[in-house]
Design a protein around this nucleic acid. Structure first.
Length: 500
DNA sequence: ATACGAATAT
DNA sequence: TATATTCGTA
């Protein structure tokens, strides 16, 4: 079992995403990235750096395949490689930025279905190889299965199309050639399984297919059909990804439900008679639109700035309500209206115990960030132009800039807002920042949703941390001297609730 | 025999 | 963690 650890692309990191090197000149990224590369590639097992060069002389980066396979490919497939849609070199990538690279069009299903006119059934059969394999035996599947995996699966399926597995095309120039362990070269010419690299682009294609089918009808085989075989994905690859996709989706919805419930509570409170002064001042209730604002240092300045970008005609993303567009098709549009998110009232000076969070490992945010980029709405929103958002007004940056806190990362969700020194000045601004509820997202708002991708990672409540009960909140308000506490709440669990 | 998908393994 | 593989099931 020759397993080669899959390489994690440095580009997958927070900082790399917005800065792809689209050229593939030598197979290695230039500049600083070389350092990264060195870190990520284990040259000890690599005899020769191998690049996959196609007819056009393009080097296809980051193929997660081993040399053996490549060789095999060359062998049986001289090189009739039609340019893949996803070949990064094919579409002036220089123009793309960050998240959204090219919104590649999903070629009509019919188009990509079978390059060589193969029937669907045939393709299906081929792609089902693994299932067959599985049932066939069990022992020593290691070498055997792996071999057959590539042999059957690939050679047949791949042979079907001359498209190369450009699965990782896009933006991942750095992940370039993967140094495969040449160990495979030995006796058993063991072919190791290839780990599919679900690049953002590939994922997008996947999502497109899913959308096209509809969530309920999106099953691996169908998705595979729609995606075509140019990526040489197997049904299992899809199934696995689909599983995760669903899972993420589920969590996303759960999160939204949570936010919605919060909104309800807030509204209850407001209905019960929230702080009059705010309402009287013409402002909204006590919800402050600071939710989701990235904690200082959680993201690179460029992205942080991006998160703050203001889209004309729309509220700044960071005060946008948590809202997932769901399927563009509308099939599963969130039933609950977008709502403002709960945040700690700005006039509540020291936040209660539950608002204080221990320092969070930056890696956590990076993960959140990456996950959001991959599974977030942008993935669902097709054809979204994704130019890097402009810099926010300096004033805005200043306003939200937080003093560096070495080692400390205030919790994003409940980062308390210190009471503004002068009480008056901010009222207008806040009003301006007030949430706009987009019941029917316009194109712009969808575009703006990209900003949400950057924002959302900071939205969720920390795991294991339940939002405070309405009672405890009101109790806290009471402590702070906020008038008008519903009797019921006051009577109820006071400090105890707040503490928990 | 196939395909699905949850659970598990790597 | 992401992806692969296994396993029970329809």
């Amino acid at each position: 079992m020759l397993e080669v650890a899959s390489l994690q692309s440095p580009n997958q990191g927070v900082f790399g995403l917005g800065d792809h090197h689209h050229h593939v000149d030598v197979g290695f990224p230039d500049g600083v990235d070389d350092d990264f590369l060195l870190d990520y590639i284990d040259f000890s097992t690599c005899d020769v750096p191998f690049f996959h060069v196609d007819d056009d002389g393009d080097i296809l980066p980051d193929l997660e395949v081993d040399p053996t396979e490549l060789l095999a490919e060359f062998a049986d497939e001289p090189a009739t490689t039609p340019t893949t849609v996803l070949n990064p070199t094919a579409d002036g990538f220089g123009a793309h930025h960050g998240v959204d690279e090219a919104k590649t069009e999903l070629p009509a299903a019919t188009d990509m279905e079978l390059p060589e006119g193969k029937g669907e059934s045939e393709t299906k059969g081929l792609l089902e190889e693994r299932d067959v394999k599985r049932s066939r035996t069990s022992n020593n599947v290691a070498a055997d299965e792996v071999r057959s995996a590539v042999t059957t699966d690939d050679s047949s399926a791949a042979a079907g199309s001359d498209a190369k597995p450009c699965a990782s095309a896009e933006g991942h120039s750095k992940r370039t050639s993967k140094p495969a362990s040449v160990a495979s070269a030995k006796s058993s010419h063991g072919r190791r399984k290839v780990k599919v690299d679900w690049t953002p682009e590939l994922h997008r294609r996947f999502v497109q297919a899913v959308e096209q089918l509809g969530l309920d009808k999106a099953v691996p085989s169908r998705i595979l059909e729609l995606m075509g075989n140019e990526y040489r994905l197997t049904r299992h690859n899809i199934a696995s990804h689909l599983q995760k996709y669903r899972s993420h989706r589920k969590h996303l919805m759960a999160r939204e439900a949570e936010a919605a419930s919060w909104t309800q509570k807030r509204q209850m409170y407001a209905a019960a008679g929230g702080p009059r002064k705010d309402a009287a001042a013409g402002g909204a209730p006590w919800v402050v639109p600071t939710i989701g604002f990235p904690p200082p240092g959680a993201m690179p300045p460029a992205h942080a700035a991006a998160a703050m970008v203001h889209h004309p005609g729309h509220p700044p993303p960071f005060c946008r309500p948590l809202h997932v567009w769901g399927h563009p098709t509308g099939v599963d549009a969130p039933p609950t209206p977008p709502a403002m998110l709960p945040v700690w009232p700005r006039h509540l000076a020291p936040p209660p115990a539950w608002a204080h969070q221990p320092p969070v490992d930056p890696a956590y945010w990076h993960q959140q960030y990456n996950a959001a980029r991959k599974w977030g709405p942008q993935a669902v929103t097709q054809g979204t132009p994704c130019a890097p958002p402009p810099m926010p007004p300096a004033a805005m940056l200043q306003r939200f800039a937080a003093p560096p806190m070495p080692g400390m990362m205030p919790h994003p969700m409940y980062r308390p807002i210190l009471p503004p020194p002068p009480p008056a000045p901010q009222s207008n601004k806040v009003a301006g920042l007030q949430l706009q509820l987009d019941a029917h997202p316009s194109k712009e708002s969808i575009d703006a949703a990209i900003g949400d991708v950057l924002v959302k990672p900071w939205l969720p409540l920390p795991l294991g941390l339940k939002p405070p009960s309405l009672d405890s909140v009101m109790s806290e308000l009471h402590k702070q001297g906020i008038p008008k506490i519903p009797p019921a709440a006051a009577a109820a669990k006071t400090s105890s609730a707040a503490a928990s």
